[in-house]
Amino acid sequence: MANQMTKAQLVAALAERTGGDKKAASGMLDALTGIITETVSQGGAVTLPGVGKIYCRERPERMVRNPSTGDQIKKDADKVVKITVAKALKDSINA
């Protein structure tokens, strides 16, 4: 990941594209993050057009292997956040 964008760079780019200031752009980004977090934690899904769909998936109880000892361990059921990348984004990367 040679060209990883930081939050400050993302806020600056968002402010430049929208013609607003960095404070407003930072507020919008924080609000978007809060909305996504709240929706997904309640079991919903958020679709960002052109980017993808963010949702929560439940994983069942399962047996896993401890890599250092090789022992089998029972792992409890849990939830994980998944992101399905939009076709438009995939196509833009492979173009």
Rank of each mutant, 00 (worst) to 15 (best):
K23S: 14
D30Y: 08
T33L: 11
V85Y: 00
R59N: 11
V11D: 02
G43F: 15
I54E: 07
I73K: 03
G52C: 10
T6F: 02
I83T: 14
G43V: 15
K75T: 04
E16R: 14
Q42H: 10
S92D: 04
V80W: 00
T37V: 09
T6I: 06
L14F: 15
G19P: 03
P67W: 13
C56H: 04
G34K: 05
R17T: 11
D78R: 15
M1G: 07
E61A: 15
A86N: 04
S92G: 02
N66M: 12
E16H: 13
R17I: 06
T47K: 15
A15S: 10
L48S: 08
A31P: 07
E61P: 06
K79I: 11
N66W: 09
V81A: 13
D91A: 13
K79M: 09
Q4H: 14
G20R: 11
E61R: 15
G20M: 08
A2T: 14
S26Y: 01
R65Q: 11
V85K: 01
G70T: 05
L89C: 05
I93C: 07
K79P: 10
L29Q: 01
K23E: 11
A2L: 09
G43E: 13
I93M: 08
K87G: 03
L10Q: 05
R57N: 03
Q42M: 08
T47R: 12
M28Y: 01
K79D: 02
R57A: 15
I35E: 14
T39D: 02
S68V: 12
R65D: 09
I93F: 05
L48A: 11
A45L: 06
V85R: 00
R59Q: 13
T33W: 05
M63I: 10
D76S: 12
L10D: 09
V64P: 07
T6A: 09
A15F: 05
I83V: 15
L32T: 01
T18M: 12
A86V: 01
V51A: 12
T47I: 07
M28G: 05
V40P: 05
K82Y: 06
S92K: 10
M1Q: 06
A8F: 05
M63Y: 02
N3C: 03
T18I: 00
C56E: 11
E38C: 00
T6W: 06
V85H: 03
G70A: 02
A12G: 09
V46A: 05
R65A: 12
A15C: 07
D78Q: 13
L32D: 02
Y55D: 09
D71L: 07
E61H: 01
G19S: 09
A88Q: 06
E58P: 03
D76C: 01
K22A: 10
D30Q: 00
V11M: 06
